[in-house]
Design a protein around this nucleic acid. Structure first.
Lengths: 316, 316
DNA sequence: CCTGCTCATAACCCCAGCTTATGTCCTCAT
DNA sequence: ATGAGGACATAAGCTGGGGTTATGAGCAGG
């Protein structure tokens, strides 16, 4: 059952150097990955080729060069079809994650492009636009393939304004207060979580952390003024002590994962890291770090049509 | 501020069609995305070009064509640098997820290629190899850039055998029993979770589900014989009733997200869907769905060197 | 034994993306 | 002012990966 590989010619013995030569040279492009997924699903190179609208030789050669690039045999060709190797199955699963991320990217980008004149105009806060909306859009697309969605990202006030001036059909905001003139429904919660690398002492902690303790410990934080920083400061009473201040959520995450220290981040931003245990969430006692995520619309104008459909996708 | 775009020429009015034309034509390739991240980080096209080892005109044209492709202005060029547009910032965040998935892919693929003659040979069960290992390898690479890691995926018995015949330095298995002749340490838990689409009645449920109730409800399941199916059957006493049987975890997830019905899946497989609320976890009362994830090694041969380093990355 | 499915190989074509060389615009220091 | 320097844009020309058509070769089943 091993992740078998073999095949794929001899060539360079030895180890895998960490060549700086960017990913592009070591990871097949999206087209190839999609092709691989299609082969996995259909069990045939030719079939996959047909599905992607290319010819069979093209598919054949593409898969072959992918195998050469990776140095691993991915599919077992036989005169009556192709099945994935064990290694191929693994690779395909990893590939699927790339493709899913690409689909989310595509859905988001498309919404960003089609501004006015779309059949569904959504206005959303940054956090929601960043982490949640692409997934919803991918789902919506399976239900309403022909609905053009446009996305406008901004803060709560901007979202409210767009709705009230009828420049958007549906809005999403985070925070406790609902802007005036809008009806809303809670669709989820954004919780700030205290996180640490698995090696950090706090990671083993079972007794919840007290607010005072959190406030007195230097943390890896976003710069002052950022949304999450504001919430944290408010929850602690303006006391958060920075260990380092970084200007992007990603940089903060990277520092925390690297063990530089504990941090406080939106659950949405670290969900992945938590389930794969690159970061561990630390229980907290008496600090209010939860915010509601709400869908909003102008009072009275209950969402209908595509807006209603999107709304139903987001609700529990 | 709004996800501003504008710029990028006039051209086709109209909506966003859901052209089947594969992702490749709508999502920039990895090279372009890396370039965008570099521009975001460095604040300059030329700087980014230098970092990626290409020339400034190449970077300039690449970014431009990316903007043309997406129909959104991504960077604000000025004679003293380039900053991201608001829309650009959003796009960059989505791009980052693709690139991270690609890095995991790369780390995994590299480990799959470098079989013997590597300085660290890891044997892992499928689930761990699929969901956890790539992340660990990415992290390990930052600590030990020159260590070649090889990965062999199989079931517990295969992992044990590799370790005992000195074909692997460190193993990872899931399950309750530790194969004979191996020492182990628990590094995490894999819990099967009952999941449903947000619209499903169970999604709103607060009272935990009883085992009997779960056993009597038709579920979307992997085919009989799969790992997760076995665990579930065992926990329920061989009683799980299938609504549909599908042959891949992905297919099951897709069906569940689509609202076909509730399902039971590994927490690792649905972590992402849970945090973005495409799926909701249903509380369960009296069913034992947790398995330990363990690192294992031959009794006595405590991991040292790179193996120890990897182990420490995985521990809480 | 032929029909029909699979995959492989060969010869050719095209365009995306690279390079080098040069131009424009702005800023800052002399 | 004026010239040096940084950052981006434009213009040529080259190259290779990925596509196409055309054809061959294994294996299954009527």
């Amino acid at each position: 059952m091993g992740g078998e590989g073999g095949g794929a010619g001899g060539g360079q013995a030895g180890a895998g150097r960490h060549v700086p030569g960017s990913l592009t040279h070591r990871v097949p492009d999206l087209g190839a990955l999609e092709l691989l997924l299609a082969v996995a699903r259909l069990g045939s190179l030719g079939g996959a080729a047909r599905e992607l609208g290319i010819t069979q030789p093209a598919a054949s050669s593409r898969v072959r060069s992918m195998e050469r690039q990776l140095g691993v045999a991915l599919v077992d060709r036989s005169p009556r079809g192709s099945r994935l190797t064990d290694a191929g199955a693994l690779v395909t699963d990893w590939a699927r994650r790339i493709v899913e991320a690409a689909e989310a990217f595509d859905a988001g980008a498309q919404a960003l492009r089609d501004r006015r004149d779309s059949r569904l105009r959504v206005a959303a806060s940054m956090t929601i636009a960043e982490y949640l909306l692409p997934g919803w859009l991918v789902a919506l697309r399976t239900q309403l393939p022909d609905t053009a969605v446009s996305l406008l990202a901004g803060n709560s006030t901007a979202v409210a304004e767009r709705l009230l001036t009828d420049e958007a059909d549906l809005g999403f905001v985070e925070g406790v207060s609902v802007p005036a003139g809008l009806d809303s429904v809670v669709i989820g919660h954004d919780r700030l979580v205290v996180v640490a690398a698995p090696g950090h002492p706090w990671a083993r902690r079972r007794r919840p952390l007290a607010a005072a303790e959190l406030a007195s410990t230097p943390l890896i934080l976003r710069e002052k003024g950022s949304g999450t920083r504001q919430v944290l400061d408010a929850a602690l009473g303006g006391l958060a002590r920075p260990l380092i201040e970084l200007s992007s959520t990603t940089a903060v995450k990277a520092a925390a994962v690297g063990g530089a220290g504990p941090s406080v981040l939106s659950e949405l931003a670290v969900g992945e890291e938590l389930t794969t245990r690159r970061l561990v969430s630390v229980p907290v006692a008496d600090v209010a770090l939860a915010r509601d995520l709400r869908a909003v619309w102008p009072t009275g104008h209950r969402p209908t049509g595509p807006a209603r459909r999107l709304l139903s996708l987001t609700q529990g």
